[in-house]
Design a protein around this nucleic acid. Structure first.
Lengths: 245, 245
DNA sequence: AGAAATTTGTTCGTATGTATA
DNA sequence: TTATACATACGAACAAATTTC
């Protein structure tokens, strides 16, 4: 509508209007810009309710359909959650999007297991450095408890579960949300599309009791604040992956 | 919202309805599922054109507006690009979304510069390991050329530019798209919201000629395939950041 | 407890701009 | 240049869930 007006007018004006035209890109982009501004300014905080869709539409000068396109996009990336009859709310929920993105990268960019492992190692390596400094008691206990369960485990599924739990506790203990979010997305992706790999590794390790050894170093190193020990466990774990992938 | 349905109805039914509930999700979710299926099955490849919106709508049994909500969401995360009059195309373009997510994490989760630096270090540390093994001639040359320009640079803006170029070449040389995408998003985020930090670091380094020293080690280490040298440069760089952040 | 108001969920119809053969 | 196919965008309407009084 507005576009037709602009296109209908002479080109000479368009330069002058550039700033305005830029502003009035796609309608749903306006919605996104408005949201971004709210976040960056601190006006919008997690849990806050957005204006009603109709209000947003009229304030931004776009249709409700366009507002909704923006809302759905924000919902998809985990920044908004919509409740029928109630409203749209600011939310912070990136895990799903991250997983989707890593998954899409894997499939669309033709990646392979090696790159996944490299990335995972990258995250865990740094996480260990931070974890030995920052781990809370709860996280240390969780790691040690999972280690105990791992050593007592009798089935493969149990081993997989406690293996994961140890790594998760360690990464969480890093208290770095960039690492944590990426790591969660990566493991979630692996759980869904990579199950066989984790199984092969566990199987290979089991036969040689290297699983317990590396995880003992890893969990205890973190719990004791012993970086060298923790890293040795990590390295031994990934050397194993390298061999059995 | 779906939870409320399930909680409201009896649990006995929910099992039976599971399949049907799955079928009758939200309309725009159907659109996303259809897309996901296409990607995972390999039927949809980057560059491919999607069915026309009307066709999708009728095939999935939803309205065009709902299709469009899904399409806009996919466009936002960089998986679809829409061209009016032409169609919707599969695209692979995560950089913007990644940046948005890191930005949102920073603001909504109350992160700080320290966590950003930790994550950046994490990515670069692993990237260096891979880069010394995999760097192509072009990437080595680009790093060395940027180093030369950095040492000849006279303005702060130039220093910032060539500093960035060296790191970028190194990360790209890792040939790991998980690292690369995260790194690009991180630098893009820093460029937009963190300009002052990079400037402070450059300024601090300038006075002591440590900028050139660490980047020389970094660039040459990578170009020569000398891991120890490269890591020394990286460490010295980040020690500086630690001091001047 | 119940009715009314509010708000999102979803669809349809229509007009219009844009690319392509 | 003209069709045709397609995306863009809006507005109106009703359904469904929630909140409010």
């Amino acid at each position: 509508m507005k576009e037709s007006e602009l296109n209908g007018s002479e080109m000479i004006e368009s330069d002058l209007e550039d700033a305005e035209v830029k502003e009035s890109e796609r309608p749903y982009q306006k919605m996104l810009d408005s949201f971004r501004e709210g976040i960056l300014s601190g006006r919008l905080r997690p849990g806050d309710r957005l204006e009603p869709e109709r209000e947003l539409a009229s304030r931004l000068g776009i249709s409700r359909n366009s507002v909704r396109e923006g809302l759905r996009a924000l919902e998809l990336i985990g920044l908004v959650s919509s409740r029928q009859g109630s409203g749209n709310f600011v939310s912070v929920n990136f895990d799903g999007t991250m997983t989707d993105m890593l998954t899409a990268m894997y499939y669309l960019k033709g990646l392979n297991e090696e790159q996944v492992t490299e990335f995972r190692f990258c995250l865990e390596w740094e996480a260990m450095h931070l974890a030995v400094e920052r781990a809370e008691k709860e996280q240390k206990q969780r790691a040690l408890e999972a280690l105990r369960m791992l050593e007592e485990a009798t089935t493969e599924d149990e081993r997989i579960r406690y293996d994961k739990a140890i790594h998760e506790a360690m990464v969480e203990a890093s208290h770095n949300d960039f690492l944590i979010t990426n790591y969660r997305a990566l493991t979630s992706f692996m759980d869904t599309y990579f199950k066989s790999m984790r199984r092969r590794i566990i199987q290979g390790m089991e036969s040689r009791h290297e699983l317990e050894m590396s995880h003992r170093l890893l969990a205890e190193g973190m719990a004791e604040g012993n970086l060298v020990k923790g890293l040795r466990g990590l390295r031994s774990h990934f050397e194993f992956i390298e061999r059995y992938k």
